[in-house]
C-alpha cells in the first residue's frame, strides 16, 4: 500500500505509506492526480507521518501536485514532516508556498465543527 486517502467536504488528505524516491513517485503522482481530479478538492494535505525516507524526487512530486491543485483553485499543505524530510523541503524553499500544518489540530477542528453541526441540527 503506497498511499491512503481521506476525503470530506472538499478536503483531501493523502497519507504516504512508503519511501519516496524517483521510482516510487511515479505511482504516487498517478494516484494523487487521479483522486484530485475525482474530488476537485479545495484543500489537499500530504501526511508524511509514515515516510521513513525521501530524496529530492519528493520535492518535484509535491510541487507538481501543488500546481495541479492550484489550477482548480485549491491549496496544498504538508504535515508530520520528519527532520530529514523537513531539511530537504527547506533547502528547496518549497515550504514558503506549501506550508507545514499541524494535522492533529486540523482534524480536531473538523471534528468540533461536525459536533456543532449536529447540535444545530438537533
Amino acid at each position: 500500500m503506497q498511499m491512503n486517502y481521506y476525503e470530506k467536504d472538499k478536503l483531501l488528505i493523502f497519507k504516504i505509506m512508503e519511501e519516496i524516491d524517483e521510482f516510487s513517485v511515479k505511482e504516487l503522482r498517478r494516484k494523487a492526480d487521479y483522486e484530485i481530479e475525482r474530488f476537485m478538492p479545495r484543500e489537499v494535505i500530504f501526511d508524511f507521518d509514515c515516510v521513513t525516507f525521501m530524496d529530492s524526487a519528493g520535492i518535484g512530486m509535491i510541487i507538481g501536485r501543488y500546481k495541479q491543485v492550484g489550477i482548480i483553485g485549491g491549496v496544498t499543505e504538508v504535515a508530520n514532516l520528519s527532520n530529514s524530510v523537513k531539511r530537504i523541503f527547506r533547502m528547496s524553499g518549497m515550504l514558503k508556498i506549501i506550508p507545514e500544518i499541524d494535522l492533529k489540530e486540523r482534524l480536531k477542528d473538523i471534528e468540533s465543527k461536525e459536533n456543532s453541526k449536529e447540535v444545530i441540527n438537533l
Binding site: 513517485v25 529530492s56 510541487i63 533547502m91 528547496s92
Partner: peptide
C-alpha cells in the same frame, strides 16, 4: 546550481547536487 535542471518538464527539482553537497 540549486534548482538547475535539464528536465524541468518532468517535475525535477534540480536539487540533487545541492543535497549531496550539504
Amino acid at each position: 546550481q540549486p534548482l538547475y535542471t535539464t528536465k524541468p518538464n518532468l517535475e525535477r527539482s534540480g536539487m540533487g547536487f545541492t543535497i549531496m553537497e550539504s
